[in-house]
Design a protein around this nucleic acid. Structure first.
Lengths: 244, 244
DNA sequence: CGCCAGGTTGATTTCGCTCAAGCAATGTGG
DNA sequence: CCACATTGCTTGAGCGAAATCAACCTGGCG
């Protein structure tokens, strides 16, 4: 029965709508068939770990559905989410390409389906199709850009601005727009995680949220966020709060 | 005469000691000859710009001698050094690989010699030798790691710890050790630049430096730094200043 | 000489961290 | 089904760190 599920999902690799939008799109049919045969699909429950810092890299993960948090932790035990991954994203290429141990851990934030592709298969595909390597280069170069942008914002912005940035970025992925232009979403992360993403304490984030509500810009209830004035928030991060 | 200089330097590409230690080491002799013929060497004065944010990417730069600062700036006019590049480092691969405009600017911090390799030549070499692409992947993956480490430190450490980290990192590159184990260096960057690298104001950095001197850990005079107790500083960043 | 950029220092205020208490939702074992 | 612990979040009070504004110093440089 597991075999059968694997079979039907194997066929879906060829027709996988996500494949059109990520690095695997450069594979020809034969290569895609190899991919479909080798990859293993698995369902994860909310909170389940996909991989953990320190373990060896045995292959790549490809998110089919759900949201996955990539976290990094240091010697003092601090854990901070580096980024979130969504359907179509490929995880773990860094460890694979460098043939190194995992430097991050990945956790499914909700029920998710994730495909696993064994390292030898990836190597074979990389050898047979040089364009695949190019695709990974693109991916990683964009990640590097994103990391540097993040670095820059953390160095220059106030905590409030950093949080507004984060809110708007999350809204792009998780939000929907109401008829009056206001926006809604369910936060994918706890407030603790959100706080550590902007390099602050959860108490401070709580107060920032309080101030946003006082200003009439947003309403928070549990994990539900309602941005009543999304435009004002966009302005807020474009207009420098500190002029020099 | 410029031709002659180019000629002799062209020969030096084959024998370039730096080439042994960077991505170009995977080229065979014929490929290296092509590299040597095409690349253009140029001397930069202190403070001279190598490339600037926003301009198109026409090729790669390979640092032969000197130190180069890679900086990023935002809409508000803040400029922060992202990293420093040293002999053997290759600059500008991000823009080249993504075929995008420069997102950073590069400036020679002192008199430097830097080789330029035209985009078509790089493309040719990438096509002829797949291992070169792998090398760039390694390079960029390591840069990504470094950026994430930086991100993590900025999110969790105090300004003082961040500065000590920075000092020790710079000392690795620029420092020399005295017989008593203390270490010296000439700072490659202004205090303003150092301050923005750790995301703080230059006045604050001034006070941090003052405190380090009070603690007897270092002495600063102009751009000369003397770390009297390097070991204590290493301990300081290993021992968590804040235990939770 | 005056000017300027880079750096230091001081005074003041703002901000964020820490510690601590309290609260709601959830889960667990009896 | 209730007593109880646990987890995630909020709120308050006090304090320390850092931003801000401003003065001043220093060494180059026209």
């Amino acid at each position: 029965m597991a075999e059968q599920r694997k079979g039907t999902l194997g066929a879906s690799c060829l027709s996988c709508p996500l494949r059109q939008r990520n690095e695997w799109s450069v594979l020809n049919e034969a290569e895609t068939r190899l991919l479909a045969r080798s990859r293993k699909s698995r369902d994860y429950r909310a909170g389940e770990s996909v991989f953990t810092m320190g373990e060896p890299s045995h292959g790549l993960y490809c998110v089919v559905s759900g949201t996955v948090a990539i976290r990094k932790s240091d010697a003092e035990g601090n854990v901070i989410p580096i980024r979130l991954a969504y359907p179509g994203d490929t995880l773990g290429y860094r460890g694979l390409l460098l043939d190194a141990k995992r430097r991050y851990s990945a956790e499914a934030l909700g029920p998710s389906r994730i495909c696993f592709i064994d390292k030898p298969v990836v190597k074979t595909l990389l050898d047979r199709n040089p364009a695949l390597g190019q695709q990974f280069l693109h991916r990683i170069a964009n990640d590097l850009d994103a990391a540097h942008d993040h670095l820059m914002r953390n160095a220059t912005l106030s905590n409030r601005s950093k949080f507004v940035h984060l809110l708007l970025a999350l809204m792009n992925r998780h939000g929907c727009t109401a008829t009056d232009g206001s926006r809604f979403m369910e936060l994918p992360l706890s407030r603790r995680d959100l706080a550590s993403m902007i390099g602050t304490r959860h108490e401070t984030l709580s107060r920032i949220i309080g101030r946003l509500e006082e200003d009439g810009l947003a309403r928070f209830s549990g994990r539900t966020v309602h941005l009543t004035q999304p435009h004002s928030l966009v302005q807020e991060i474009q207009r420098p709060s500190r002029l020099d």
